[in-house]
């Protein structure tokens, strides 16, 4: 069983990575957020396996673009605070702001709150494309590394 798992795990990342690179190409060529979203959906569907394995695949697939857990947690906390999400409502990396009851103005406020918290500046175009906690965390990691580099 362990062998089998390892085989799957070692096989999948390359497949996923290939998928991912095609996804990036798609985004650049069409510059449409819709195509990105649908690609992403297919990515999510292939990773829905036993949880430990799923986590492994996610990690290796997205490599450095995958945000750290602390960042995701911090983003979740800020989102909760900003939207006054009632206690007990789970906020995870996959949570969409709109599903948590945020309208577009709330989303702007969240991004502004994140900017202050992480001491970064999000430019206009990327700020518009943030729809989930994961999106926000990924962008923050990118901007923070760019700033320290």
């Amino acid at each position: 069983m362990a062998h089998c798992l390892a085989a799957v795990a070692s096989f999948s990342p390359s497949a996923v990575r290939r998928r991912l690179s095609s996804q990036v190409a798609n985004v650049i060529s069409s510059r449409s957020s819709v195509s990105f979203r649908s690609q992403k959906m297919s990515f999510v569907s292939i990773s829905s396996r036993p949880s430990s394995l799923r986590f492994k695949i996610c990690c290796s697939a997205t490599g450095e673009t995958q945000a750290k857990k602390e960042t995701v947690d911090k983003v979740c906390m800020i989102v909760k605070k900003q939207l006054a999400v009632p206690d007990g409502t789970p906020v995870t990396a996959e949570s969409k702001f709109s599903e948590l009851g945020a309208d577009s103005l709330d989303t702007v406020e969240i991004v502004m709150g994140l900017e202050e918290e992480f001491n970064i500046t999000v430019d206009e175009t990327s700020a518009q494309d943030i729809a989930t906690v994961q999106d926000a965390a990924d962008l923050i990691e990118k901007l923070v590394t760019e700033k320290t580099a």
Binding site: V34, L105, V108, Q128
Partner: peptide, 21 residues
């Protein structure tokens, strides 16, 4: 509507962001 905002909606959000900044 969340994913596809019209130009004028984007402008309004940009204005809001400008105020908050």
């Amino acid at each position: 509507s969340r994913t596809k905002l019209s130009g004028i909606q984007r402008q309004a959000l940009a204005l809001y962001r400008g105020f908050l900044r």
